[in-house]
């Protein structure tokens, strides 16, 4: 198991967003987390990546106990994430974004005594990554000017730049047009080789096309886990979606 949580819980002032979750993600799998809004998917992501500290329970990632570790240490273990709410450097160009992400994988960042011309060695790789997510033409544009779907694609390029063992994608296709959704699905299929991917996704056709395993969350708890077909036909899942808010 590359990711394992046991009894993982997170409460905010009495509200339990994640409640005793035992999640196990197998190496090499694409594992989807689905569930109605407010089911705790993003909170779970934040617990896995160190942005939140759990109230109770443990998290282990690739054999390391990372409970309570800061985000930068988890990132250095080969865990990259994209953010649901787009989280970029508004004034930096796309090229600078990816170069920065590539810089983050090296020890160069601490060198205040060398010229930033050393960053030119990341130039080609940054171009390739932008090309892969379909943003090559916009490489010199500040990220603040991008449309929402393009920002999602840049998020993906940044995560890939870290060459992670584990890729956590929080709604990678939200806000994308149909064509971009298809390209993103193809991209994830391509980059999953040798990696483990965990994604939160609302678009069920994306889940159907990608996921080996699906975990359905509701009220912070695991409701059902299984393959897409098993989960889709489970009566509890149908009830959770239909009985809750508007269905998918």
């Amino acid at each position: 198991m590359v990711i394992e949580t046991s009894g993982l819980s997170k409460s905010f002032r009495g509200f339990t967003a994640v409640d005793r979750v035992d999640l196990a993600v197998e190496e090499g799998h694409v594992h989807a987390l689905v569930g109605p809004n407010g089911a705790g998917k993003t909170t779970l992501f934040n617990l896995l990546t160190g942005f939140l500290k759990p109230t109770a329970g443990r998290v282990s990632m690739a054999g390391h106990d990372i409970t309570g570790s800061p985000p930068e240490r988890i990132a250095r273990l080969g865990v990259a994430r994209s953010f649901q709410i787009t989280n970029l450097f508004e004034h930096l160009t796309l090229q600078q974004h990816v170069e920065l992400a590539l810089l983050g994988t090296t020890k160069l960042g601490h060198r205040f005594w060398v010229s930033d011309r050393v960053l030119t060695k990341f130039h080609d790789r940054a171009g390739e990554l932008l090309d892969e997510v379909g943003l090559a033409k916009l490489r010199d544009v500040p990220a603040g000017t991008l449309a929402y779907g393009q920002k999602r694609a840049l998020e993906l390029a940044l995560a890939l730049a870290l060459d992670p063992k584990v890729l956590l994608l929080d709604e990678p296709t939200a806000g994308m047009g149909l064509e971009d959704v298809e390209r993103t699905v193809e991209l994830v299929k391509r980059v999953r080789t040798g990696r483990t991917v965990v994604l939160v996704e609302h678009n069920m056709s994306v889940v159907a096309g990608l996921a080996d395993r699906v975990t359905v969350l509701q009220f912070g708890r695991i409701l059902v886990e299984g393959t897409y077909d098993e989960v889709r036909n489970d009566s509890r899942v149908i009830e959770a979606y239909l009985g809750g808010e508007s269905a998918a």
């Binding site: 250095r76 953010f83 989280n87 970029l88 170069e99």
Partner: peptide, 17 residues
């Protein structure tokens, strides 16, 4: 470069390692 990134968005800088 990293300093400017930290100025612009500290949380994002951390998730880049």
């Amino acid at each position: 470069r990293v300093l400017v990134a930290i100025r612009e968005n500290p949380a994002r800088s951390r998730s880049l390692g």
